[in-house]
Design a protein around this nucleic acid. Sequence first.
DNA 1: GCCGTTCTTGTCCCATGGTACAATATGAAA
DNA 2: TTTCATATTGTACCATGGGACAAGAACGGC
Lengths: 210, 210
Amino acid sequence: MHAYVHIVDDDCSFRKALERRLKLAGYRVGTYASARELLDQLPDDEEAGCILLDVRIPGMSGPELQRRLNELESTLPIVFLTGHADTAITVQAIKAGAEDFLTKPIASEQLIEAINRAVARHELVRDQRTRLDSLRALLAKLTPRERQVFDLIVCGRINKQIAHELGTTERTIKAHRHQVMEKMKVQSLAELVSIAERLGTRASGGAVKA
Amino acid sequence: MHAYVHIVDDDCSFRKALERRLKLAGYRVGTYASARELLDQLPDDEEAGCILLDVRIPGMSGPELQRRLNELESTLPIVFLTGHADTAITVQAIKAGAEDFLTKPIASEQLIEAINRAVARHELVRDQRTRLDSLRALLAKLTPRERQVFDLIVCGRINKQIAHELGTTERTIKAHRHQVMEKMKVQSLAELVSIAERLGTRASGGAVKA
DNA sequence: GCCGTTCTTGTCCCATGGTACAATATGAAA
DNA sequence: TTTCATATTGTACCATGGGACAAGAACGGC
């Protein structure tokens, strides 16, 4: 399956030329005349690909679109393409996670290399995201009470303490604990803590008493 | 305590002028005419500060020095200062972790802001580094055998399995396990797994049998 | 050879976790 | 009203973890 390159540029002839070049190179291509246009038909994150984005486009600017996509938790890497390089904008874009920042005119070879790097990275972050999402989905299926127990378990509390902190009995905690292990699909406390750590849902130690 | 700014620039008059400006602003300043000079009297990572680095300097270039410092695991943030901006170099520098990339001439206000951001970040990464280093130090004190047991514990193995995999008895593993908890200064398995996760010393699950 | 570290092992006993087999209560949804 | 999910609790029983108390064997360094 070939990667999908999304071109956002207001210069129609440039878009067309780039589209031809990339299709010849084996990519599938989507073209958008503005940031709005891309947002309206939001590309599928699941499909390996990247965004080729002009900095100065009418309406929403390139960096502004980048910000929006970050908010939307898009994983599609962005390769900026601009006519006039501006250091401050370049720095901002890269810090905000852009994969690359190229200046027009750009040699096909360089462009392809940048796109390939971006696509390769997308496959990594997309897979990573998928894994985290499935863990988050499991966590979301816990009832409120189970979630409380989960939090205390991964903080290292023993059943007795948890029961005391939640104002119930040890027996009840055992029941919840069982449900938690079941729903999170883990066999050991170690796995559970590992998940909590990766999801960042851990208040380290905390006070023993509420 | 004021932050320490390390200026690396081959232009002596520029160095002096910058030094005066920054000292007036309350910083302590170290000046270096070349990358070599800075490497020879390597600044203390412990002290809050940052590096102001020219891109084009005789001998080792700015980005090259940055690479060396990264290899040396320096935590001092780098703010690049250059006369002629080059997009490719800018992108590379930021990707390699530079805090900022500014062009000469630079307004004092902007420079100070960049330095303050860099110093603030340095305090964060330095503290983070310190915490990880103390954990690594604890881990390093484990004997080879204890380390093997540690690895299997945080993978979720129970004593019986560990004993079998290491070809010894459950009783022995209990002894090692006790030592591990003692040396790592933790009270619960959860804390131990959390440390392993943060140090990246975890082969997730793995086969039950060797 | 003596000493310290490491790795090893044992028994007894208790605390904690986990499971099987049940059962009650409450609130929301159908 | 009935039904379902949620939260609760009990009694056993067994598996696992962990401490107390002790001690032997191998190895390297002084």
